[in-house]
Design a protein around this nucleic acid. Structure first.
Lengths: 209, 209
DNA sequence: AACTTAATGTTGCAATTGCAACATTAATGA
DNA sequence: TCATTAATGTTGCAATTGCAACATTAAGTT
């Protein structure tokens, strides 16, 4: 995964963080970031731990918008957090850095040679995010649960380079990701097993085609 | 819409374009960019005209991936074009600039004060693209055609600030965008009209709720 | 270990949808 | 203008799906 401070030494990292008025924060497990801060105009970086961006819509549904691990970048620049519907939850104790992103645009830092490197890194990260979204759209565009599953498996298998893949999340979360009813998905997976298309043992799935 | 050369004067624009080994191209109407060039590692900018990125999948389906108007930015940085499945078609005579995007990452241009501005602009554009994708995902995640339509209308109405909105594309394309069967969508729109939810006259839609 | 909560599996049934086939209207171009 | 192509509208029907309700198993907590 691309890292925001790739090719920037510790000293210059420090300078950038100071320049951008960033702050360090430690989120205890299960705590929502917005119970600690109120602004959403930041660019966040996960230093250690895991976060989850969760949306609670008006009808009480809870959806995972994004899973964030070490080095992941988040914030309104990527996902609109500008609404009380969103929570940023620490899945375990998590250390983050928050950068005031208005400052990214306000000033001209071109005199600092390392700042350009930083911008290039950020660019790569955003490109990855777009790719991620495109992939999900590609999947959501399929018309049947089976085709969504197959597209998703294909993508994972390609990423891993094998016909055996490990789901990065639970079946409940997978159903969410594919935007289908969990029970209907469970049924479809059963059919696919019965037809010999796939083998499943817990989160390991083997493609037989 | 954000523009790649916002706040950069013509002279510096020229310098950037030279620095990045960009080239000018004019695409005649209905011509596919990839019949003219073969590389896909460019960052494209539409100067005048209209482009459409179209995907032809293995089963012969043709989908519009993206509509690009004046000042729009495109390329593999945003949509993966690395496959013969994709076409970049000019809907009318279109003038574009192609920038070799490997050069964006390879060199350090921080000594050029305007380059930083350019990177900031690019950042904003990518942020917009992510937002666009997030919006579509939000819509595709709805489980019924009606809810997809309502979410889409809501979004458009919000953008326009009125309860009357103009579809930016045809119903056939809308069905594509929502990833539903056109006929089924047409039926659902009929029901919504009958129930007094909306009024439709050609591409103008009025929300009655 | 005992308890609680979350995840998974299963199924009947009604609602929604895709598909196919066709009619009608609008847009395009020679 | 006339012809051709594209877009839209309509509907029956079968397939797919969401929903609800419940059983079972796994995971997490004290």
């Amino acid at each position: 995964m691309n890292y925001l401070f790739e090719n920037i030494n510790a000293r210059n990292q420090g300078k950038i963080l100071k320049l951008l008025e960033s702050e360090y924060l430690t989120l205890p497990k299960n705590v929502n970031l917005f119970t600690i801060i109120s602004s959403d105009s930041f660019l966040g970086l996960v230093r250690t731990g895991k976060l989850q961006i969760v949306k609670n819509d008006y009808s009480g549904n809870r959806t995972i918008v994004e899973d964030l691990n070490e080095n992941a970048v988040f914030g309104s620049i990527i996902t609109n957090l500008n609404s009380t519907e969103y929570e940023v939850i620490a899945k375990e104790e998590t250390k983050i850095i928050l950068i005031d992103y208005n400052r990214l645009y306000q000033n001209d830092y071109s005199k600092y040679e390392y700042y350009n490197e930083f911008m290039k890194n950020l660019l790569k990260i955003l490109t990855d995010k777009i790719e991620e979204r495109n992939q999900r759209i590609e999947i959501l565009t399929k018309k049947t649960i089976r085709n969504k599953l197959l597209e998703y498996f294909k993508m994972l298998a390609k990423k891993m380079g094998t016909r055996t893949l490990y789901l990065p999340f639970s079946f409940t979360e997978l159903a969410d990701y594919l935007a289908v009813d969990r029970c209907a998905m469970s049924r479809e997976l059963k059919y696919m097993k019965e037809e010999g298309f796939i083998k499943i043992s817990s989160r390991r799935i083997t493609l037989m085609y």
